[in-house]
Design a protein around this nucleic acid. Structure first.
Length: 415
RNA sequence: GUGGCCGUAGCUCAAUGGUAGAGUCCCAGAUUGUGAUUCUGGUUGUUGCGGGUUCGAGUCCCGUCGGUCACCCCA
């Protein structure tokens, strides 16, 4: 049987690599004072239709359940988060700093950096309108990437704002109801040929040249300047660049938006996010009106970039080696001593040593080879010497005879 | 959703239209209780699947499934 397209088996090594990223995300988020939440993997289809109309429906894993409910595997977290916050918003002190590491499902054709199933870190700050929240959000994002060994040479946060484009559009005489259409044109202006952009902009009496000129101006607006100052004060200024080419595709973004790219631009965006100050009100039919911002970062592109960045790869490999290494391998040299060996194994395990041993009789040479392959630091050989055992440090090949009752204490001294 | 390229052993890959192979991995062994290397032996395939052309198809053609890259989209 083949896998479904875009889905992954996680063999132990794959699973360890995934956990490396997920554990780092959680560690950094907590370090920044974010708390973890989660929601259902399956949601009513209506939850996603409410926010975005119907166009994303084609990219959902949706079906009718046995109770005739139209349901969808979650493709994103924001609607769930909005529902949760709207339901119990008054229980929590503002601002909320929440994160989540959900698995998402999107029915799209897979390609590099995009599968039909993936993990995505979501960080959100809700109930804080000041630019300090934007800076905090970008800072945690930067440290997520630094946490896996990526540096200023490897990635850059491209910071922009829809507010800046709103002002640009308004000054050119544009109406606010046309804003979203205008944003879409801007979003594509770098990729499309100028003639095409000119044609699209004609109805607004604008030209591609005007848009591109503004896009390439690197001056921070009054909205963005304090964010840059905040990040610079943290020593993180070098990770951020103003880039008005970033507008993001979604309709609900209201102000600051940002995306993270690898410097070589070999990969898709590593992360993206921004302010969505009106969304909670929209999702809760006006019951809850709180400013909010957040970002998402997927595991697939990040894993690709780690693999392609030597320093990050080395850090990952070192972590993997530690992660899978056994601590002690108990060698049963005389099968008649298996009962005694089992006692020692149990004792070691109860003391917290990661311990393994041969389940069936095997030659001593083979057992040492297995110990080596498992990455064990020590072997405890049990045989004719009983009630003494031989403790060997594999790296140095040094071997010591120890009373069986003293093994634990001996290992304690060795570590 | 559209298009290009690709699909052979668990993995990496060979094989002019003419008997499906190598390396690696794994397993066993090479003086009774000590790890690398080395040596010997062994397991593994409806050549993704289904049709067609041909005396003969891994190879050519069509379809299909899967992979990959680009476009689209990107929550």
């Amino acid at each position: 049987m083949q896998l479904l397209p875009g889905f992954r088996d996680f063999f132990p090594d794959d699973c360890a690599r995934r956990n490396y990223i997920l554990e780092m995300w959680r560690a950094v988020a907590r370090r920044y004072g974010f708390v973890e939440y989660d929601g259902p993997v399956l949601e009513p289809m209506a939850l996603y239709e409410k926010k975005s109309g119907g166009e994303i429906v084609g990219q959902l894993f949706d079906f009718t359940d046995k109770g005739a409910r139209h349901v969808a595997m979650r493709p994103e977290m924001t609607p769930t988060l909005a529902r949760m916050v709207a339901a119990r918003e008054r229980d929590f002190k503002k601002p909320l700093k929440w994160f989540c590491v959900p698995q998402f499902f999107r029915y799209e054709k897979q390609q590099r950096g995009r599968l039909r199933e993936f993990y995505q870190l979501n960080c959100d700050i809700i109930g804080e309108a000041s630019s300090a929240a934007d800076a905090e959000m970008i800072a945690v994002l930067i440290d997520m990437l630094r946490g896996v060994g990526l540096g200023e040479k490897d990635f850059v946060v491209r910071l922009s704002s829809r507010t800046a484009w709103q002002e640009f559009f308004a000054q050119a005489g544009g109406k606010s109801e046309d804003e979203y259409e205008f944003f879409q044109i801007v979003d594509k202006a770098e990729r499309n040929p100028p003639e095409k952009t000119d044609a699209a902009l004609a109805k607004f009496s604008l030209t591609a040249q005007q848009v591109l000129d503004f896009m390439r101006s690197k001056t921070a607006t009054a909205e963005l300047a304090p964010i840059l100052a905040d990040l610079t004060a943290r020593g993180l200024g070098g990770f951020v660049e103003i880039d008005y080419a970033i507008v993001r595709g979604l309709a609900y973004y209201t102000g600051v938006v940002f995306e993270v790219f690898d410097r070589s631009k070999n990969e898709r965006a590593l992360a993206g996010g921004g302010r969505y100050d009106k969304l909670l009100s929209l999702m809760s039919d006006g019951k809850v009106d709180l400013p909010a911002l957040g970002f998402g970062m997927g595991d697939v592109v990040l894993a690709n970039l780690i693999d392609d960045t030597p320093a990050a790869k080395a850090q990952l490999d070192a972590w993997l080696a530690r992660e899978r290494a056994a601590d002690v391998y108990v060698v049963i040299a005389k099968e008649e001593r298996r009962a005694e060996a089992l006692g020692v194994v149990q004792q070691l395990r109860e003391a917290g040593h990661r311990t393994d041993f041969p389940l069936t009789a095997a030659k001593v040479g083979k057992q040492f080879r297995t110990a080596e392959q498992l990455g064990a630091r020590l072997t405890v050989l049990i045989g004719d010497e009983w009630p003494q055992v031989k403790v060997k440090t594999l790296a140095t090949r040094e071997e010591v005879l120890v009373d069986a009752g003293e093994v634990l204490a001996f290992l304690q001294r060795k570590s």
